[in-house]
Design a protein around this nucleic acid. Sequence first.
DNA 1: GTCTATAGTCAGATAGAC
DNA 2: GTCTATCTGACTATAGAC
Lengths: 209, 209
Amino acid sequence: MSESGKQVGSKRRRSTGSPTGVARKEVIIRAAATVFAEKGFSNATVRDIADEADMLSGSLYYYFDSKEAMIEEVLATYLDLTVTGYQRAADELENPAEALHELISLALRGVVQYRSEVTILQNDWHYIRPIASIARRQREVEEIWLSTLDRGTKAGVFRGDLDTRMVYRTLMGAIQAVIRWYDPRGKVTVDEVIAVQSSVLLDGIRSPR
Amino acid sequence: MSESGKQVGSKRRRSTGSPTGVARKEVIIRAAATVFAEKGFSNATVRDIADEADMLSGSLYYYFDSKEAMIEEVLATYLDLTVTGYQRAADELENPAEALHELISLALRGVVQYRSEVTILQNDWHYIRPIASIARRQREVEEIWLSTLDRGTKAGVFRGDLDTRMVYRTLMGAIQAVIRWYDPRGKVTVDEVIAVQSSVLLDGIRSPR
DNA sequence: GTCTATAGTCAGATAGAC
DNA sequence: GTCTATCTGACTATAGAC
């Protein structure tokens, strides 16, 4: 993206308000997320990330041991936020249909808000050497959804004839695919996407009365 | 995968029944599909593909101009089959609900049968230089689905309050995500997946009576 | 048609000056 | 902390023998 600022950069960087220390690491994480999402993990170079963060590639290694360490921190930061949000929603809403609606809604807002991270998880996750900390958080997400679905089935709100895990995967698949077509600058609002998907997916699993 | 067969390979290759000519190109396309799906397009090397096809990397260039030319032919071959299948189903079945059920069923069988191609399309498509022939076929697929959905809405079988394109993308998202969790060697059969997804998705868009 | 050998390029990572 | 300079390895693609 930014081709400029290589020679004059050092002056701009040290001007008032330029990030240093911990904040600087944050800047690099954001830059890495953007570049990984745009080009894919293997196509992205550390030089691309350095450009985006307005520094030179060698300097990145003061903060990170490797390119892989960067993606790990990008994803961990995102997943922590997600797990926390889901957990609170599942705990607070007793009505399973309401809880599931809220989970769907949170998931869709997350897809839009954390576009880069979701893109990376979908496209590159399988090709990266397994990272235990990330896999663990993904399992936590799954368990929150599964227990919500189970609660609804036991309460008779959701159909009992379907395998819960398969239903979870169907819902998540539909939701996460939104990353591939939703355009934040287009006419369709997030709320409209939430309305359509909640409606289709909830109607699909609700008990016939 | 195959580390062996580099020195003795030439003997094995020329033994009875080894493919040559057009058939040999087919072998390379299959090998490329396997390797691209397993490692991702950019992580896969032409040497990996050559190994899988039991030849040396230089020889690949007798059949293809570049690594990109290989992925193009992998995907075109797959998409041709898919478009043809969808088209016939949509033409033959007048009842829109039956037609859509058949499309869903075909799509899910396709995901399982053409695992590598679907994986490549999902993970690498966005990072490859646009290929017009592939994009055109993807639009054809979309149009078949959209017209089937529209037929159903006009006939009053499907709900009329939902944006057709958004519904299409929701369905496709759920279906294609199956590639990330379905294990052909596991306990769940394809028919069971078809049953659950058809049921959830069709119930989600059917008109309330 | 397939091989051997290698040209040409570019990536991730490091060392040491400042 | 950031930069300059560079090492080392790996990759795509080609040339020419067989």
